[in-house]
């Protein structure tokens, strides 16, 4: 499916936070050595606070690892890259822009000013008009791809939480990144909406063949969507288990009733259950 060196390669990634408490630094993420092949879909599951967002922000280039390295498509990550799209856990749709303008936003930001180009006089800027048309077209494609057609002129305040996350997804897709990082994008939504949007993400992935890292705390969501699930532990956040999801590629929500799905679910749940109890004991200073 991919040549070596492409996709996302994590090499012994460790992230410490200096804490104000007496315990010394908090190790949020430790010893993570994993790989997502180009075009692969991997989910990360783990209890809240285990370092999922931290790991994602390191891959996104938004935070430097304390040690270790991340390579994306063969290049070491040193900062944010427009070829890596991020969808944040929080609602990041800009309330003062309508759907179209939100989706166009990254494309407009990316249009770097062409310095030193000779001006041909006022009104004579063929480059600009063409760029604007290209941006409009790309944004419309992304809007249609996530099923927001007909809502172009709506403002975020007029949209449901599910629709707003569609806007965020369209905005990320409009840049056509080769890597898509999604941090619990549907965690705040109700179960039905989450299932629906999960199916959309999988359908879109089938069309775009991007490399996807999908963070969630929902085991079923992780199994339904991905080819591989990384199970993460709590403090330090390490990968406890890597589970290959050997379910049919054209699966839908009905797969949850199959024995294979249940077996995968049980395996991940067993891992997380002991982990969650250990984390609970640690948080509450019980003798573990």
């Amino acid at each position: 499916m991919s040549s070596p060196g492409t996709g996302v390669v994590l090499d012994d990634v460790r992230v410490e936070f200096r804490s104000s408490g007496r315990d010394g630094p908090v190790v949020a993420v430790d010893g993570i050595t994993q790989e997502i092949p180009a075009g692969g879909f991997v989910s990360v599951v783990g209890p809240s606070g285990c370092g999922k967002s931290t790991l994602l922000s390191v891959i996104a280039g938004l935070r430097a690892a304390t040690s270790g390295s991340v390579r994306i498509n063969g290049r070491t990550v040193t900062g944010p890259d427009r070829d890596v799209g991020v969808m944040f856990q929080e609602d990041s749709v800009l309330p003062w822009k309508n759907v179209t303008d939100n989706v166009r936003f990254p494309l407009q930001i990316a249009r770097v000013p062409r310095a030193g180009r000779p001006r041909l006089g006022p009104g004579h800027r063929p480059g600009r008009a063409a760029a604007r048309r290209r941006i409009a077209q790309r944004a419309q494609e992304a809007i249609d791809l996530v099923g927001l057609g007909g809502f172009e002129r709506r403002y975020p305040a007029e949209l449901s939480g599910g629709m707003r996350q569609r806007v965020a997804l369209a905005r990320t897709l409009a840049m056509r990144p080769s890597v898509l990082l999604m941090d619990e994008p549907f965690a705040a939504l109700d179960q039905q909406t989450r299932l629906l949007l999960g199916a959309e993400v999988r359908r879109i992935w089938g069309e775009t063949h991007q490399t996807v890292l999908f963070v969630t705390h929902d085991i079923s969501e992780a199994i339904l969507l991905s080819q591989q699930v990384w199970v993460m532990s709590y403090r330090p956040g390490t990968i406890l288990d890597v589970v290959d999801v050997d379910l049919p590629a054209d699966r839908d929500a009905s797969v949850v009733s199959t024995p294979r799905f249940n077996a995968l679910h049980n395996r991940i749940w067993e891992r997380l259950r002991t982990e969650a109890m250990r984390g609970f004991a640690q948080e509450n200073r019980f003798p573990a």
Binding site: P80, L94, P106
Partner: peptide, 28 residues
């Protein structure tokens, strides 16, 4: 919201773009 700053950084917005297209509209 902190996520607006992260959005700006992930898109590699310049300081000027962050000021005029995120900060000022956000505090309107």
């Amino acid at each position: 919201p902190d996520v607006y700053w992260r959005l700006a950084r992930s898109l590699r917005a310049t300081r000027w773009q962050t000021l005029t297209r995120i900060l000022l509209p956000a505090i309107r």
